[in-house]
Design a protein around this nucleic acid. Structure first.
Lengths: 137, 137
DNA sequence: ATAATCGCTGTACCATACTACAGAGTCAAG
DNA sequence: CTTGACTCTGTAGTATGGTACAGCGATTAT
């Protein structure tokens, strides 16, 4: 006997009960089985899925994009080549995010270094951090 | 003569005119000087700032957080140690995002590899990608 | 010099992602 | 066996981040 009620799942995933029902309504989560009195019965994996959603949102993915990531997995065996292409798009996308974040981090590190030093900063490293690279003449 | 109208800035930054005015209303952008007829006169750096905002949003930062990043820079010379602490918080935060994205990327790569191979996948690598690490007994 | 385009303010509306009830049934602990 | 916490459905409200006019003046291209 391992099924969880919605409240347990919510607590373990660190999100609200209403939010879970909302995700279900929008189709992001599929409907779990119910017990005799109509209570949702979640398998423990539901917690994993919800934690994934939470994290992915913090990384700038919309609920729709998160759904696409799930679909990628579900359709995997069906239409292999197609899925591969879309997965590679996601990967490229993610790599760009990582690059941007790395630049942003470097800029902030830079800022804290300058802070311990002295003198005015002519160009703001944070702002220019996310500029598209351009060749220097 | 280098001042740009709002339309020029918007085009160069790749965002809408209305959005720029919206950012101004909310205080994310400070009010630019005006010309005789009341038109906003932006310096070229405004484009850099707007592109930063656009990117940062894609990375999961809220407008408020983006504003905090800007403040970090502005207050830099004033309250050095304090700024340093908050900058380091941001850095830690960013490092976690990078870690999560890297895990997600690896999981997707994994998925495309499995795809070219064959056989059913018992555990979904995407879902478990963003799980907090736990020691394996 | 006169449209078309752009800019101004102000207000209203929109999509996304929740969040909060109301009103009724269910379950578990003392 | 009741009382308090939990669940259900349904509907409504909120926060964030825009987007879209209307109604007017300024500018620019022909």
């Amino acid at each position: 006997m391992k099924a969880l009620t919605i409240g347990k799942v919510a607590k373990q995933a660190g999100i609200g009960v209403e939010t879970i029902r909302f995700y279900e309504r929008t189709g992001l989560l599929n409907e779990p089985p119910r017990n005799n009195s109509g209570y949702r019965q979640y398998p423990p994996e539901a917690v994993v899925k919800l934690r994934f959603i939470k994290k992915a949102k913090q990384l700038g993915f919309s609920l729709q994009e998160i759904g696409e990531l799930f679909n990628l997995r579900r359709q995997q065996d069906a239409t292999c080549g197609d899925v591969r292409i879309r997965a590679e798009e996601k990967i490229t996308n993610i790599e760009e995010k990582i690059r941007d974040l790395t630049r942003m981090k470097d800029a902030l590190t830079n800022l804290t270094c300058q802070c311990s030093g002295k003198g005015p900063v002519s160009k703001c490293p944070i702002l220019t951090a996310l500029e598209p690279e351009k060749e220097k003449p």
